[in-house]
Nucleic acid binder design. Structure first.
Lengths: 227, 227
DNA sequence: CAATAATGCGAGCTATTCTCAGTTTTCGGT
DNA sequence: ACCGAAAACTGAGAATAGCTCGCATTATTG
């Protein structure tokens, strides 16, 4: 069980829960997940260890609660990108710039928190599920924009999901562990450029309609003679 | 300290270390990281808990050792993709097919192990560093192929790194937590297709040389009037 | 065949998570 | 205002898991 065993009903207990989460966030970020004890969290929150365990069944649940809060805030930020897009109908390039900038901000705003939630602590199945769910939602919104911006091309839903997953991987890798030999802004620019090319309407070859790619086995390729 | 405190010198101790790692791999995969105790690992390996701690300074070190072994094997697989490419000089599409297939195989061959190392267990800074290092190596190899396959375009090193990070994110998300409403092979096909378009030589517009993209602030975009 | 080094052992020390029986506070009803 | 019940809080300590340390056993060297 990773959800609170008891829902706080009174104002007092809601403040207790808030204090516990605040303390947990601070101590987790300062000392890391493993080196933070639940007793220290309770002490810092000004409550007894018993109170903590009344609302959080175990230490992981504290982390899950923080992660869900962060995930919700992140989803909110990204949703605003698409709200803006719905109003202004930007070009693909401008949309990607806004989207990448937003995701980048989520990584750089509170890197310690992001690193804590995504790297340092064990990922419970529930957390992973929540994350994938958020991913799907963003992909869905992006798919809508793609349908607006281009006429044909491959399944927009699939392209959008790939883009969301890809951008997340790229920015996570770049912003949390910046390669020493590259500058960050250039990296972001390149990512925008790359996705623009990947998602733009493919310019049809003048010689005829582009053929659909043959299905190919995705496993060890032999490079036999190409035909 | 996460590396063995003592290097095994005699044959006997090398077998001990191997037995411990084998037991750790089995128990971690079966019961998860948190629910596996070091005493159980030692018991299963047929050695005493003291022997375990002679070669692994703490529980995390067991995981790091498993991860490094897995990472080395993975890097080996991917290196073979580029070895094949060096010999056969495949088209971009065929290279991508082989690369994606290889990375997919790494995820599907032993999903439990992959999930353990990448999702379930805490990622130590050392592990993350090793992972990024492998990423850089693969990107470097891919950059070489890009230089062969296309004349101009943006910095191949940057494009390659983005591709490696992106592919990893896409396949990780898709293969470990398959979206219920999509088939996996189609997903892989779409990824290959997407990266082909993203990395291919951009077809120059007939009206003139493509202009370099203006540098744009990557942060919250206002969508002022476009000019 | 010593002497020395390497390896193996496991009872128990230490630290941390989590429980539970009892106390205090809040709140609706009269 | 007062009461009873429910909610909230407490903290000593039970349970458990990571890890240590002194000593026994096995291998290597000269």
């Amino acid at each position: 069980m990773l959800t609170p065993r008891k829902q706080p009903r009174q104002q007092r207990s809601r403040e207790t829960v808030a204090a516990i989460l605040e303390a947990a966030a601070q101590l987790f970020q300062r000392h890391g997940y493993a080196d933070t004890t639940t007793n220290k969290i309770a002490e810092r929150a000004g409550v007894s260890i018993g109170s903590l365990y009344q609302y959080f069944p175990n230490k992981d649940a504290l982390l899950v609660a923080l992660a869900e809060r962060h995930l919700a805030q992140s989803a909110e930020q990204v949703a605003q990108v698409f709200a803006r897009a719905a109003e202004h109908r930007p070009s693909l390039h401008d949309l990607l710039t806004d989207l990448v900038g937003c995701v980048a901000a989520l990584h750089t705003d509170r890197p310690a928190l992001h690193r804590l939630l995504f790297d340092q602590a064990p990922r419970t199945p529930g957390l992973v599920a929540r994350f994938r769910q958020a991913e799907q939602q963003i992909a869905h919104a992006l798919a809508g924009e793609l349908r607006r911006l281009r006429a044909g091309g491959p399944d927009p839903g699939l392209s959008a999901l790939l883009a969301v997953q890809g951008i997340e991987g790229q920015l996570h890798g770049t912003l949390l562990d910046p390669p020493s030999d590259r500058d960050t802004t250039g990296h972001l620019q390149a990512a925008i450029r790359l996705w623009h090319q990947a998602l733009a309407e493919p310019t049809p070859l003048p010689s005829g309609p582009s053929r659909a790619p043959r299905a190919q086995p995705a496993r060890p390729q032999r490079y036999g003679r190409r035909r």
